[in-house]
Every structure is written in C-alpha cells, then in structure tokens.
Design a binder for these strands. Structure first.
Length: 580
DNA sequence: GCCGTTTTCGGCCCGACTGTTTTCAGTCG
C-alpha cells in the first residue's frame, strides 16, 4: 500500500474518532501521523521492514503497529471496526460548513439522521431547530451549507484565486485607512487548489476597513463581520476572509494567517520551549502570561523567525514538513525563482491544437526573456489534437529553420509531444525521434487501464533513450478529472535509472507532478522540468504556477532541467541516446 | 495516541465569531 493511501486512511480514522466523540487529541495524533507519512521522502516499505517507523515524529508504538499492519497486509482491522461503528453518511455530513463532529453526532443520535439527504430533509421539516443547542439560524446555516456542497463550489484553481487575490489586495492598498496589506492563507503558500482566500491588513481604524471591504463591488453575501474580521462570498462563489490588526501586530497576523496550521503549531511550540519561553499568537511574541505581558517588536516576518533563532522560511515551505528543522540546521534550500529558468519546453502552436502560430509563440517566449524555447506539437496518434503526421514533421522543421533566421534573439528547438502508446512505445520510429532536439512523452488516452498495465506502459516509455521529459505524469485535471492509476514510485525509479526528466506541468488545470512527488523525484536524483504546456501566448506565463509547485517541492535551480543552458541539456541527451 | 530541560502523568495552539445562551459550546481557521 502506498504512502498516499496510508495517509488518507489515517486521516479518515481521525475523523471517525471525532465522530465517536473520543479524546480529540487522540484524533489529532492520527492526523499528525497522516501528515508525517504523506511527506516522507524515504521509502515507506523500507521503513516498515526495518522497524524504523517509530523514529518518525508523532509515531509511537501504537501507530507504528497500525501502520505496519496496513502496509504489510493492505488492511487494518482497527479501521474496519471503526468504519462499521460509524454510519458512512456522517463523514459526508461533517463536510457541511457549520456542522462539525459534535453536532453531526448529536443529530444522528437524537434524530437518526445518517446521510446528507436525511439531514436536508430534517432541516426542511424544522426538526433541527428544536434540538437543545440548535436554533433557527443554525438550521438555516446547515441548509445553506448543504446547498453549497451540492453546487460543488468553494474550490478554485490557484490561477483564478491569484488573479482575484491581487485585485482584492489592490483594493485594500488603495484604502486610506490601510497601512499594510497582504495575501495570506493557502494562496500565499501557493497551493494548487484554494478553498478560500485570506487577506490580512493593518489599520488604526479597522472598523472602517471592514465596512469598506464588505461593501465592495462583487460581494454577494456577508457571511460574518465583526470588529476585526470579516468573511464575504463573492459572486463567483469564492469566500474571502479579511483580518484587520494594529500595524505592530501585522507581521504576526500575516505569519499566523499564512499557516499552515501545522507550521503554526510547530512555531508556537518552538516559542514556548525552554530555550525561548515565549508565547506566539497572531498579535505578537510575548514574554510571560497575561494581557500586560511585554511584547517583542518585530517589523516583519523575518524578524519573527530571527527572534526564534531561524532564518526566513518561505511561505511555500510552511507545512511542518521539516522546514523548521532544516532552517534550524541552516539547510534550507535556495528555492528556485522564475529568473533561474533559462528556457522553456512544451509549447504548442496552431500546427496541432494551439491557437497561435509558431512565430507568435517564439516571439512570446523571447519577450519573456528566455534563452531557448522548445516547440512541441502533438504527435501523429493524437487525432483529437490534430497531431503531426510524418510529412508534417518535416514541413514544420523547415518552417522552424526559416524562423531561426527571422528571430535570432532566442534559440528555437524543434521537439514533439509524443503520445505514449498503449504498449509504452513512442509515436514515431527511432530514426525520426532522433532528429528532434527533444521529445516529451505523455499519456493522452487509455486512462482506464489497470495500475499494473499503466505502470508498465509509462516505465517502458521512460526507459526509452529518446524520451527527454515525461509529460504530465498522472493525467489529473484539477477539480475535473482524477489521476489515472499508476505506481509513481516505479516511474520515479525508472526515471532515476534511465536519466529521463519528469515534467512539472505548469498549466493551472494540471500542476502535475504535485510537490510531494516532485520532492520525492528530486530525492531520487531525477531532474524536473517546469513546462508551460502553452496553447497560446498568454499560456507561456503559466510557468509562474509551475515555479510555485517547484518551490513547494523544495527545488533549487540545480534540480530543474530548464534552469540549465541548452548545451548542457543536449549533452545529457546525447549520452542517453548513445547508450540506447 | 504522543511525548518529556518542571516529565511516565497530564498535558496537547488558541483566538474570533456565531448562536444559543445568561456564561458557554461548537466551529473555524
């Protein structure tokens, strides 16, 4: 059983325990373990085999035993028993905003409600409002919450949230009473999908800022508004939270609301430890207890980290996935930045399914300052995308040669995005493949194969010496389509052995590889390539989101294929082709 | 269920907001 599955079972156990009303800290222990397992860079099977699970943070004797059972036998009686005891509908019910484990349990015990549908019916029959601790408003809120879930709103692509976030930030910065403002939350940590958007501002007149914010254009509903905090929903369904604090507290509020929650807990613990004996919250860093406790002034986030003996930790790393320990040891990576990229691969044109000409795409890439651009239209089997037949490839090559003399400002590479066929072969004979400057291999069909078949297929492609980069390795479409079933450990191993690079597809609908897998690939010595998968000139700028993913994966410029000059990449490739 | 520079029991981050309540529980982040 793989890490992701083990982790999600541990998460589910935590929820089941909460629903049973058990010690909440016990539930948290399972949550912590789930996170630890998910962010492992070591091989889980090997850890289990060596009985070394207990060395991991937050995993003691009981959890070690449970995880070992899960990994070695593929099931866990403790989990199966829990599932039998808790009606499955309750897990659905606690996804309703405003309904947590306590009330879900109450509703189940007193009204026999055990599904979303039954919950909705009970609300409509006015049966929740009469329960102790409930009322009209709670019932109404739950009904609205069910509706919200049904519409499947509430989750947005990073790209959409980024655009909206920047507009909202500009609105706040224009407000006369705002001193400082910043995006916080998961958007600042650059997660690929954003649930809600968090903003932090500082002001001497918070009430005026809150008031202006809730009256802003585009606000569809005010979900809550107090002295220092407001929650609104925009017409798009995006929920936006604003917190306004005194300017001296701004860095603390920014740090706190950037999270992640796990990072914050770890930072608080650090502050409280015997070494510092401080108290950290969203208002400051304090010595001693009580409201009169003297605060330690910090002008910015860097100062907070400094007071706690740490260098600045970038928001993208704040997941309590080892960043604090690495910072402590002075081993934080110098995270890759957009200007580190020397060129880009994976650019489509109107020769296949792109919307712009080769020349427009090339000039677009040159305008963004890249030294080389790798053009790669679809290959012959990609009928849906007007893939290039062999004669088209030759025609395209002569057009590219002409383009090279017209646009000398950038090196133009002729590549292909070759379909990986069902048996794992690439889409052209070797003689043709060898004539491309580079080859991206991607799966575009046959998503429903078994895991075993798909793994065999992709591993064979990765072992092909003509494949330069494995494109969008899981096929997922965020908020759209699940990844296909594949053993990514095996794919990463194959890439490490054969020297193929793996793509971080920067298209905001894909962002595939995800950070955990990219980090794992890097640990295995695989180079990652941050590719726009652009179908128009605007799409070239999506590289930004790929860089975000790479940073969340702890990647430095050294770990990224296209942060290297083309000559070096060509050498790597020549060596592989010679061996094949 | 985990963990230990006041330790092997008794804690585990903590504040804001809401709705239901006359002092607080539940939820959220």
């Amino acid at each position: 059983m793989d890490r992701a599955r083990v982790s999600s079972i541990l998460e589910e156990i935590a929820l089941l325990l909460e629903l049973r009303g058990e010690n909440p800290f016990k539930a948290r222990a399972f949550q912590n373990a789930a996170r630890t397992i998910l962010s492992l860079t070591e091989d889980l099977d090997a850890l289990v085999a060596a009985s070394r699970l207990g060395e991991l943070k937050g995993i003691g004797k009981a959890l070690e035993e449970k995880i070992s059972t899960l990994v070695t036998t593929g099931s866990l009686p403790y989990y199966e028993d829990l599932k039998r005891e808790v009606p499955p509908g309750l897990l659905e019910m606690i996804k309703v905003p405003g309904l947590g484990p306590k009330r879900a349990r109450q509703v189940h015990e007193l009204l026999g409600v055990d599904s979303l549908a039954a919950l909705e019916y009970a609300c409509r029959e006015n049966r929740l409002a009469s329960m102790a601790g409930f009322g009209e408003k709670t019932q109404e809120k739950i009904l609205k919450g069910i509706e919200f879930l049904r519409r499947n709103l509430g989750r947005f692509l990073l790209s959409e949230a980024t655009v909206r976030g920047r507009e909202l930030l500009a609105f706040l910065e224009r407000h006369a009473d705002v001193v400082r403002a910043e995006i916080a939350g998961s958007l600042r940590r650059r997660k690929e999908v954003i649930g809600d958007l968090d903003l932090v501002a500082s002001s001497a007149a918070p009430a005026r800022v809150i008031s202006a914010f809730t009256k802003m254009d585009g606000v569809e509903a005010i979900l809550g508004a107090g002295e220092t905090k407001a929650m609104v929903r925009l017409a798009s369904g995006l929920q936006v939270d604003l917190r306004v604090v005194d300017d001296a507290a701004f860095p603390f509020a920014l740090h706190y609301f950037t999270g992640s929650k796990a990072h914050n807990i770890a930072m608080r613990r650090r502050a409280e430890s015997a070494r510092y004996r401080l108290r950290l919250n969203e208002y400051g860093l304090f010595r001693g207890e009580g409201e009169a406790a003297p605060g330690i002034p910090c002008a910015d986030e860097e100062a907070i980290f400094r007071e706690l003996g740490l260098p600045y930790i970038a928001p993208e790393l704040r997941e309590d996935a080892g960043e604090i320990e690495a910072a402590e040891r002075g081993e934080l990576p110098r995270l890759i930045e957009r200007p580190d990229l020397k060129g880009i691969f994976h650019v489509h044109s109107n020769w296949s399914d792109g919307r712009a000409t080769l020349e427009e795409m090339v000039r677009g890439a040159a305008a963004l300052g890249y030294g080389y651009v790798g053009l790669s239209d679809h290959s012959r089997s990609a009928g849906y995308a007007r893939g290039l037949k062999e004669p088209d490839v030759l025609k395209q090559r002569s057009e590219i040669e002409a383009l090279r003399s017209r646009v000398p400002a950038i090196r133009i590479l002729h590549g292909i995005e070759s379909d990986i066929l069902a048996d794992g072969a690439l889409d052209y004979p070797d003689e043709l493949l060898r004539q491309f400057d580079f080859v991206i291999g991607s799966v575009h069909s046959g998503f429903t194969m078994t895991e075993e078949e798909m793994t065999k297929r992709v591993v064979r492609a990765v072992e092909n010496p003509f494949l330069t980069i494995l494109g969008h390795p899981t096929g997922r479409l965020l908020l759209g389509r699940e990844a296909f079933r594949i053993d990514l450990d095996a794919v990463i191993d194959a890439a490490a052995r054969s020297g193929a690079a793996i793509e971080i597809n920067a298209n905001p609908h894909r962002l595939d590889f995800d950070p955990l897998r990219a980090r794992q690939a890097r640990a295995s010595g695989v180079l990652l390539s941050i590719n726009p998968d652009a179908h128009d000139v605007g799409g070239l700028s999506d590289v930004e989101y790929g860089v975000d993913t790479a940073r969340r994966a702890w990647l430095t410029a050294e770990d990224v294929l296209n942060a290297r000059p083309w000559e070096e990449i060509a050498q790597i490739q020549d060596r592989r082709r010679a061996k094949g």
